[in-house]
């Protein structure tokens, strides 16, 4: 894999990061994933080595089919890798984990449960004492702006509100690791911007380790301490970029030169790898 500056070592320590003994909350060590299909084996992930430092917000950005979601599934213990290993702290992942929360692109709420009961589903499935978490669920819903909607059903709420409930559900049992798989992918542009700001506020307050998968470059830069750029066939890490923008970041920063220089660095990776083509390359005959 040429032209990469891959590395799992934590660099510039972001504000609030825990300086514990093991700096990485999650480590991928030479992870590969090969599917057996009818037309032979397909390599979805190859040679992924990456560290996610405790308390950091790390985004994985890449084109569809680059295996970025698979990486999350491996971390959650919902799939097993075929090469290498995934470590949570010092323990290799061998199945579903007690200490994480997942948010998917679809809110996956249950229509027959109220907002509050949807948040508490996580508690019920994990067989935790429900009564003890009721207050926390209410507080979480309040903190994401859903005060007064505790007893609404998902179908009465907008897409953004539903996704907020899903985020609360992922946080209710206070996990150290939050896994997010394109959580804003199904939302409209304005709602996405708002969700981005709100997620940052939530993260600044709780300082969870977040592994965030997206195909939006600005979203990744805005939210992250570190952006992992992946390319496909097979899915591999092309570049890891630390984002040194000050926090809290505000929406107007997305149009400033410093922000845009990060955007162009990531764009260049995709252009070089043929994920993005501009018009001149597509029509070389033109002047």
């Amino acid at each position: 894999m040429p032209m990469t500056d891959q590395g799992g070592t934590p660099s510039a320590t972001p504000p609030g990061a825990d300086a514990g003994a093991s700096p990485d909350a999650v480590r991928f060590e030479g992870v590969g994933l090969t599917y057996a299909t009818a037309r032979g084996p397909v390599r979805a992930l190859a040679d992924i080595t990456l560290g996610v430092p405790r308390g950091h917000f790390v985004s994985i950005v890449g084109p569809s089919g680059c295996g970025k979601s698979s990486l999350l599934m491996l971390t959650a213990g919902l799939r097993s890798c075929t090469e290498g290993r995934v470590l949570i702290g010092a323990t290799p992942v061998s199945g579903p984990q007690a200490d994480n929360g997942i948010v998917f692109q679809n809110d996956t709420l249950l229509d027959w449960r109220s907002a509050l009961d949807n948040v508490l589903l996580q508690v019920e499935l994990r067989r935790l004492p429900k009564a003890r978490y009721r207050q926390r669920a209410t507080d979480l819903l309040h903190s994401v702006g859903l005060a007064g909607f505790e007893h609404s059903r998902p179908y009465e709420l907008s897409g953004g509100m539903r996704q907020r409930i899903a985020i609360c559900r992922a946080l209710i049992h206070d996990p150290h690791l939050l896994l997010m798989d394109e959580p804003f992918g199904a939302l409209d542009a304005l709602t996405r911007d708002q969700m981005m700001c709100d997620l940052q506020a939530l993260w600044l307050e709780q300082r969870k380790t977040v592994l965030f998968v997206t195909h939006s470059i600005p979203e990744a830069i805005f939210l992250s301490d570190r952006v992992v750029v992946m390319t496909s066939r097979p899915g591999q890490i092309d570049k890891i970029i630390d984002i040194a923008l000050p926090r809290p970041r505000e929406l107007h920063m997305t149009t400033e030169p410093e922000f845009n220089s990060y955007v162009s660095v990531i764009r260049q990776v995709f252009e070089r790898r043929g994920v993005l083509k501009d018009e001149r390359e597509q029509n070389p005959a033109r002047p």
């Binding site: 959650a76 998917f104 679809n106």
Partner: peptide, 26 residues
Amino acid sequence: PSEMLDLAHSTQASGFTILRKIRFPF
């Protein structure tokens, strides 16, 4: 939906719990 099942499995819930809380009402 498979994402719903992924979510349920990620919580280490038993097959019976998933049946009772998700599959059956669904």
